[in-house]
Design a protein around this nucleic acid. Structure first.
Lengths: 149, 149
DNA sequence: AACGTTATTGCAATTAATTGCAATAACGGA
DNA sequence: TCCGTTATTGCAATTAATTGCAATAACGTT
């Protein structure tokens, strides 16, 4: 469940310093909702300690993204959201009409990633894959409207 | 090559009004580089006409994204970039170490998207798929360093 | 071609995200 | 355990992106 120690260890192994701020941010991210904004994390950490600053939250989250421990994406409202995978490999499907985020397990994902690596040498982070499109609900509604939503 | 008319027609069909601003933005996006920021588009349009505003550029680009005609992603420097597919279906591979964006054609992509639709009903936009990971170069360098980059 | 409806624009203001820099604190070595 | 080096933090300032609202203009209808 809690990857906290894994994440902290990963950072330490890579030569980064482990500060109380980073620990709190990582714990909050790991235990929190599936998708959180930097502001969300900041507010939650703030309840535990006053020794935290929004800039630090942004920097730490971005560091985690850079090191492949979390991912960052643009939510449908244009704001940045952060996420870290808790259970296995699944795809995030963001509907560009309603903004809802669905999850899916897809057999072909691992083979796809392997094919990418074989043909290009690029090692894709399979924990953090997000696709955009239109969900079933919105798709049906669109058909009946045939007009802008 | 130029999808401009396709895009404009698509918007018109969906009931959106076609303004000179939207036309210029779409043309700029369609003819420009693979990945551009809103500011880039704004500057280029500005050279053609003074009747343009950065807020309008953001709004139009976001509209295109919302309608599936373009996609928006976070570049490695954290800024938002916009892109529209010109030639066929390819994957964008963003290296989270060096920030470079590679392209790849992968056979398994279409089957994957079909599998998603079959199992979940979600219609993914296959023109705009971006994965993050580590490219071959950075991967090799990482191995030799075994230290933070 | 002129009119009315209403989406879109531009501007100004606001919010979100990033950055430079001095002060602080983590961590390896003495 | 203390010290020195240097990454990290917090603050303030800046840049990026979004939004409310009045003025404008697109487009269907007459």
């Amino acid at each position: 469940m809690t990857h906290c120690h894994t994440f902290i260890q990963a950072l330490r192994n890579q030569g980064y310093r482990i500060t109380p701020q980073r620990e709190m941010i990582i714990e909050t991210l790991a235990h929190g909702d599936q998708h959180v904004s930097a502001e969300d994390v900041y507010q939650q950490v703030l309840q535990r300690s006053k020794a935290i600053n929004l800039a630090t939250v942004y920097r730490t989250l971005d560091l985690l993204v850079e090191r492949g421990l979390a991912s960052r994406f643009v939510a449908s409202d244009g704001k940045l959201m952060y996420t870290t995978e808790k259970h296995g490999t699944h795809l995030h499907l963001t509907c560009r009409i309603c903004g809802k985020i669905y999850q899916a397990e897809v057999d072909l994902l691992i083979p796809l990633i392997q094919q990418i690596e074989t043909t290009t040498g690029f090692k894709a982070d399979f924990e953090h894959i997000a696709l955009t499109g239109v969900c079933q609900n919105c798709c049906n509604q669109n058909l009946s409207e045939l007009q802008k939503g």
